[in-house]
């Protein structure tokens, strides 16, 4: 039977453009982009969504999502998103930030945006390393993890401990939704899809800030094959960053 006679059961979401991702092989940013696009389509938000893009590997989001987008300075996406949402309350505002952007330079902005109960959605990609700048230590780098700036492995005393963002943000009263999910298997991806919807739903219902943290692989900067990297994600990252929903409205 030819393809023409069959029913398409899995296709690229409408809000995703045809542009080929610039990400490295095995990197999960593309998957997170797809989940975001799927969720935009699910809630029919493409005509009112505004993406606010942090600095990092996700900075070209506008090439891939067919929505209005605004770049923001490193770490400031929640502040930019606040300005957009407050001046345009009918829009749907979603930030896309990495671990360096959100959990290092942008800790102040994310905490206070949550604390003000801003109705914005935060997509937070945690791959435990600085990707775009070439593999330096991130605030989420695991103890002992070698990076280009922790050549002997991260020593918590002195280099700091990994920061658990979903738990941290869930403690703030203005947070409506905070969850951590993973991208490395189809079962985890299904859970991630559900969590992404809740993070969007929080804004749709004006309940407050919704944050989804996605554990992702960065094979290039982990110096691993894609297969090794998903095994590391499963075996090591989840221990430090337990999966789960920490706040749900």
């Amino acid at each position: 039977m030819s393809i023409a006679a069959k029913k398409r059961v899995f296709a690229s979401p409408a809000s995703l453009t045809d542009n080929k991702f610039h990400f490295c092989p095995g990197c999960h940013h593309g998957l997170v982009h797809r989940l975001a696009a799927e969720t935009i389509d699910y809630y029919d938000l493409s005509s009112k969504a505004i993406g606010v893009i942090g600095v990092g590997c996700g900075v070209f989001l506008y090439d891939y999502l067919a929505i209005d987008c605004c770049e923001s300075p490193h770490g400031r996406a929640p502040a930019v998103a606040t300005g957009i949402k407050r001046s345009n309350p009918d829009s749907f505002v979603v930030t896309y930030q990495g671990d360096g952007d959100l959990a290092a330079i942008g800790t102040s902005e994310i905490i206070h945006a949550a604390n003000r109960q801003e109705s914005i959605t935060i997509i937070f990609v945690n791959n435990s390393v600085y990707g775009m700048t070439g593999g330096q230590m991130a605030p989420t780098t695991l103890p002992g993890q070698k990076t280009t700036t922790t050549p002997a492995g991260r020593q918590p005393v002195g280099d700091g401990y990994p920061i658990n963002v979903a738990e941290l943000i869930s403690t703030l009263k203005g947070t409506a939704f905070a969850a951590r999910v993973a991208c490395h298997s189809h079962t985890h991806i299904r859970t991630a899809r559900k969590a992404m919807r809740r993070a969007f739903q929080a804004q749709i219902e004006k309940r407050g800030l919704g944050l989804i943290e996605l554990l992702s692989a960065c094979p290039t900067n982990w110096r691993m094959t894609p297969q090794q990297s998903v095994r590391r994600l499963e075996a090591e990252m989840i221990n430090t960053f337990p999966l789960g929903t920490y706040k749900d409205f």
Binding site: I3, R8, V9, F10, L16, H28, L31, R34
Partner: peptide
């Protein structure tokens, strides 16, 4: 079987599945 797990896990949206 057309289960589409391959497409679900593909980080580059490179697969379409028909059934």
């Amino acid at each position: 079987s057309g289960c589409a797990l391959c497409a679900e896990i593909c980080p580059d949206v490179a697969l379409e599945v028909y059934r």
